[in-house]
């Protein structure tokens, strides 16, 4: 029998959780809806799920607390997708730092939620297990740089923020997730395409050169991203996973 992904939806608004549940069911997923953290814990005791959709703004234990609790307990490997009512960068960052895998701002479209759920499921299954927990809210250190994966920017030795465009960040993440492995342009393109895939039309070569500039990497003698003739690129340094940014 084919595995059907089981999604647990935690939202205090009855209508929203039922509408979401029905939509996902209609699109071939198995869903369970609960109203709060207590019910969520009770359900998870008996049934493991593949992904949890968690609303941040809930009476009682809010989504951020529940997410942290999940990450600390035996469900730390279960991906979490946060629903937030506030379209604010700091909220997103807090959510990711609490260990959420993705977030979606209310009001959202159900088909976008479905797309995100599928993307998160695909990503967590693809990644080697040791990187799953480093997915978000962590610092990745390499060379003289650190990458803040929740705020999505680079930090130099002085702690000065060096911003990255969305495409640059995604490409750098691909390299950092696959260090010292040669990746060809097709692989890079596939892995770099995030949820804004349709908007992404830069050639990989241009992106690599932009990223090198950002990292102050000399294009003729690159220290970070090396060109492998007729094959692609390789990120040549080791990547260290640090704790959450202070």
């Amino acid at each position: 029998m084919e595995h059907v992904d089981h999604i647990l939806i935690v939202d205090d608004d009855r209508e929203i959780r039922e509408l979401v549940g029905n939509y996902l069911k209609k699109n071939g997923l198995r869903t369970t809806v609960v109203a709060d953290g207590r019910q969520m814990r009770a359900f998870l005791e008996s049934t493991p799920v593949d992904l949890i959709v968690l609303d941040i703004m809930m009476p009682g234990d809010d989504g951020l607390m529940l997410c942290r609790e999940l990450r600390a307990g035996k469900h730390k490997a279960t991906p979490v997708l946060m629903l937030t009512a506030r379209n604010d960068e700091t909220d997103r960052i807090i959510g990711l730092e609490m260990g959420a895998d993705d977030y979606l701002v209310k009001p959202f479209a159900a088909r976008e939620l479905l797309a995100r759920i599928n993307a998160v499921l695909r990503r967590t299954r693809m990644l080697p297990p040791n990187l799953v927990v480093t997915e978000s809210g962590r610092l990745l250190a390499f060379g003289r740089w650190r990458l803040d994966t929740s705020a999505r920017h680079l930090l130099d030795e002085d702690g000065t923020m060096v911003a990255l465009s969305g495409a640059e960040y995604r490409l750098l993440r691909v390299f950092l997730d696959h260090p010292q492995r040669v990746l060809n342009r097709d692989q890079l393109l596939n892995l770099t395409q995030g949820r804004d895939a349709d908007l992404f039309d830069r050639s990989i070569d241009l992106l690599v050169s932009r990223l090198r500039q950002r990292l102050l990497d000399d294009a003729r003698e690159p220290a970070y991203i090396k060109t492998v003739r007729s094959e692609g690129y390789v990120f040549s340094l080791a990547v260290e996973v640090l704790g959450a940014p202070s």
């Binding site: 929203i16 009512a85 209310k106 009001p107 959202f108 159900a110």
Partner: peptide
Amino acid sequence: TPITRMKL
């Protein structure tokens, strides 16, 4: 919240 419901 109502807008979210309506969109859904």
